[in-house]
Simulated assay, not measured.
Amino acid sequence: MPEAFASGGPMLLAGTANLPLAEEIAQVVKVPLGAVTIQRFSDGEIFVRIDENVRGRDIFIIQSTTAPADSIMEMLLLIDAVKRASAARVTAVMPYFGYARQDRKDQPRVAIGAKLVANMLVSAGADRVLSVDFHQHQIQGFFDVPVDHLYAAPVFTRYFREKQLTNLVVVSPDVGSAKMARGFAKRLDATMGIIDKRRPAANVAEVMNVIGEVEGKDCLLSDDMIDTAGTMAEAARALKERGANDVYACATHALLSGPAVERLANAPFKEIVVTNTVPVPQEKRFPGLTVLSVGELVGQAIRFTHINESVSSLFE
């Protein structure tokens, strides 16, 4: 039996939502993925079985909870299976935490989906949660267990520093992303701007104004996710109309739903940079799209969690 699998050592398991990232994380941690059987009955019901002994082990289950909800169900069943098999501790590693946009009751008679998912994870038996760039920071408070909230910012800033862009403006595509943009601007020695937009309907964005000086400067739009890309595409056009030079974009979670690929490909971007928290299939890739990996970041966080070291030291 390998030393890494000694009693009480870390063990990595993965659902089917993002196996390439899980394998990359396993290489960083230097622990192979544990054997898991995940099957579906003819009616679509999910069956999960852990094919190795997990008694007394420190378990890390890697699964981005992308749509459809099967990914969440897989995670819940995996947690339940290892808890019933007497695992010592279970950490839900969720590079992308789905339903995060449903984090408040902003209309009458709507669900708070993010809190519901948090409750289900804890009820299933998760002892800790590790995730990357929640849609809103307060989601950490939805859990009754410790949460390690990682930021993809070091991955992006390293990439853009190597480009040695000068006279750069980091632009937040809306007021809600201003804190993230401010962090990028500080790390890249850039100034900051904000897009003033309104949403007449879900997944529909309309730019009203650009706050900040962008004329004659390179601009970097930063956000936590790109879904249908309406916000990003309209923001890029607004910046170009106001005299910006090259327009770049970065976003942690590349959901790329519906018309997103077409919108981004036709918008005046120099480059769009995302991470692999969500798998980006070949049919959604296009010239100008760059996918960076968070495997090293998440892998190091898992190692630090296992040996009870500070995860926040990764960002100092």
Rank of each mutant, 00 (worst) to 15 (best):
G113M: 09
A67Y: 12
P108F: 10
D148R: 12
L33E: 02
R57T: 00
N276K: 01
A236D: 05
P20R: 12
I72L: 15
V90K: 04
G193E: 02
P287M: 13
Q107K: 14
R187H: 11
V31M: 11
I194C: 08
Y248E: 05
D70V: 11
T290Q: 13
H306L: 08
S222H: 08
S7G: 07
M73I: 15
L168H: 03
A126I: 02
D43A: 09
D51S: 12
A235R: 01
I62N: 00
V298I: 15
R104N: 03
V31G: 04
V29N: 05
V273F: 10
E309P: 02
N53Y: 06
A81P: 00
I307G: 02
G141W: 03
I302M: 01
S71I: 11
R161L: 09
V210E: 08
G8H: 07
L130D: 03
D224N: 09
P287T: 03
N276F: 01
D51L: 10
A87N: 00
R84K: 14
N209P: 01
I302D: 03
E316Q: 15
P154Q: 13
V28D: 03
V294I: 15
V273K: 10
I226K: 07
E3W: 13
P281G: 07
L33G: 04
P287G: 08
G193L: 00
T157V: 15
A178V: 12
K217A: 11
G230W: 10
T228I: 08
L121T: 02
F269A: 08
